[in-house]
Amino acid sequence: MSDKTVNLPLRAKGKRATFYKDPAVDQLFAIVTMLTQELSVAFDRIETVERMLDKSGVISRADIEAYKPGEQEEGERTQRRDEYIGRVFNILHQEAASLRDS
């Protein structure tokens, strides 16, 4: 019967195309494209939340736009951004780190 759960396949039958000499670049490209999509979706969700808060009168979008963090808060954000960039680009740092450790 039709009530069993169906998992639709993600892979398309046939050889996966590559465009770069190193297929790792193709994989990376796929990952970056998916990440770009997820970031776009995250923006959409934030915008939805902002608009709903605005509509319900809790916070106005204009207030969000005009918001300026104080000095301490800016410091905390700077720290978070710094760590974030370090995590994302960790690969660039790894070789040097391993040489330093050895």
Binding site: F19, F29, T33
Partner: peptide
Amino acid sequence: FEGWSSLRYNAQLM
């Protein structure tokens, strides 16, 4: 071409 094709190919799957 490599970049354009990669984007197009991934957009097709997505």
